[in-house]
Design a protein around this nucleic acid. Structure first.
Lengths: 350, 350
DNA sequence: AGCTACATTTAGATCGTTCCAATCGAGACA
DNA sequence: TGTCTCGATTGGAACGATCTAAATGTAGCT
């Protein structure tokens, strides 16, 4: 039987129409489950669709209907578990809505971000979810994606200013409040000499978290010494190396609010190497609640941001934007939730 | 100026043709950098393209040319750092080749896998990279993706048998050899009573790793006791819980080859809780070399599989397949490299 | 029979691009 | 002048779907 030959050209709607003796239009109606078509015709056509192994060509349909069934997801660092979780959440929700995720990873490079955006936009996504690379600029992004395609900014703000007509939605984490909560928690535990450890000053999220720390310290009337602010790469390794800098001058801190979990885990490593037991001799908090945080020794007090849930939220927001392009722009600030574990015990002296 | 109005309908090749006074065909030639067009016309058209902010509609082009510029990437668990790295590698290489990644995450559910594949295939990807969900079946996958679209199987084999005409490429990890290396390493360290810890018997990768362990043990003339084989969920938590089962009977093992890093880290946690210091009182090896392995205490001896590099390799393989659909099917087994760290010290008694 | 109402079907244009074959203009050559 | 090349350009069909407006057939009613 020729019909069983495994290798054959793609079967189209026209093929089905021809072999059932109805018009292309009718087959199209069947495909879309229209109530207009007669029961018998529908059955006949559907049988033929199955028999020939027809697969719908969504690209052709989208062309004609001038619609899109995809959303671009552009991430500065997919390999980071936080973003991987986020991506999983995005894809989950988009999938449920019948959309497909166009992935792009920029590796924190502005040039690659431009290239990736330019390439993705040619595939005509209905919208874009962008977690920009550090230092990415609003004007540039606008120039390559244009003003037609809705964009949702995640996690970071763009540099430069945006023309007022480009109303982009934003979904940010409440970095400042999160760091404030952590600091307040340490203060409540009885700590008075609290450091802010890790991260780079030119990262917007680091600045926000530091601001939250300052806010809490100031409100509690506590002072902050210069050597209590240590900058590091946001990695475990660099954090471990720089641990010593906290103890170069007197008085040494008894606790540290860390930029994120990676840094916090690195700091705990460094403390161990100096003979200090984190969670007993020195309190530590992180940010992100990565999977590891619950399993480290001691378990890490940190701020949960629910990356998967944020992904779902991002997807829902951009889908809502597609439904109503004229609606007011969203500016969502997702709260970070303090998860208290063992690494943030009261100071030794108490 | 109307031309500066930010919101306007998409500008097409026809618009450019109209306002430069050349035909659509010529504009198309310019877009594709054909040497046929005159220098002056090219310059004129290119200027107009920029002026109107034209963006290429790749979907329309693909429709006409009957080509594709996307590859579907379907992963059983995107949130797992191993697969996130893999995805980053895939996307990197595909991007360089001008392809776009269609992402699909199945969350280890066969039903979702079917749905995701069905949805992605409608977008007409040139090929599919699939890391199947546990228990996924060849016949079913074939039924939904058809025989036209090349498929590359990654990481796991499919259940059931495949009709001979569907020649799918495969990229697998050398699980057996990896586990054998780890076991041999422990034996060389002087261990004689070595357990195989973690994983489920119905996972193909677990079976392969166990086989490698058995191979090394048998070759060394070492015997294996039943209670030295403990099954767990492939998670840290379950591994930590089940640690005790290794010590229910005499003689207890002095070392364990673990299914993967998560399990190994969990086992180390469990050992600590029993007052045994991993790397001194008991040797442990993992599999995967997750970021954390290098930083745990003690640092974990494990097998590096280079997920990012595997991603690049998978992308290259499927791209090669697109170029030559008739070429022999690839069956690549990527080696796993033993990374010796502190967790695999010689036994206490030596 | 003539008319309307209703359910079902359909021809043909269309989306934005590419491909093919044909055309055009200008210079070369006999 | 007429024919031939050759470089540059182009009209129109095509890709696989959808949409619109119109056609078709059947039945009911007067």
């Amino acid at each position: 039987m020729e019909s069983n030959t495994p290798i054959r050209r793609k079967v189209t709607l026209t093929d089905i129409a021809a072999s059932t003796g109805v018009s292309r239009a009718t087959v199209s109606l069947v495909l879309r489950g229209s109530p207009l078509v007669n029961k018998l015709t529908r059955a006949k056509v559907e049988a033929e669709l199955r028999r020939q192994g027809y697969v719908y060509n969504r690209a052709a349909a989208n062309l004609r209907r001038r619609t899109s069934s995809s959303i671009a997801l552009v991430l500065n660092e997919l390999a980071n578990p936080f973003f991987a979780e986020f991506a999983a959440g995005v894809d989950e929700t988009l999938g449920e809505a019948g959309f497909v995720t166009l992935l792009g990873s920029t590796g924190e490079s502005i040039e690659r971000e431009q290239a990736v955006l330019a390439s993705l936009i040619e595939h005509g996504p209905g919208g874009i979810i962008l977690s920009p690379a550090e230092g990415s600029d609003a004007q540039q992004v606008l120039a390559t994606v244009g003003a037609q395609t809705p964009l949702l900014l995640f996690n970071r703000e763009l540099g430069g200013s945006l023309p007022e007509f480009a109303h982009w939605d934003r979904l940010m984490l409440d970095n400042q409040r999160g760091a404030r909560l952590a600091t307040e928690h340490l203060i409540a535990q009885g700590h008075k000499r609290i450091a802010f450890f890790g991260g780079h000053r030119d990262s917007s999220s680091c600045r926000q978290r530091h601001a939250g720390y300052v806010e809490a310290m100031t409100a509690a009337g506590l002072s902050m010494l210069p050597h209590w602010r240590v900058e590091t790469a946001p990695t475990r390794l660099d954090a471990a190396h720089r641990c010593g800098e906290l103890f170069t001058h007197e008085p040494a801190p008894t606790a540290a609010v860390c930029y994120n979990d990676a840094v916090a885990l690195g700091l705990m490593l460094g403390l161990n190497q100096r003979g200090l037991q984190p969670g007993r001799d020195f309190a530590v908090t992180g940010f992100d609640d990565v999977a590891e945080a619950a399993f480290s020794t001691p378990a890490l007090t940190t701020l949960a941001t629910g990356p998967r849930e944020r992904g779902r939220q991002a997807a829902q927001t951009i889908l809502a934007r597609l439904r109503d392009p004229q609606a007011d722009t969203n500016f969502i600030v997702a709260p970070a939730q303090l998860v208290v574990r063992e690494s943030s015990a009261p100071p030794r002296s108490l």
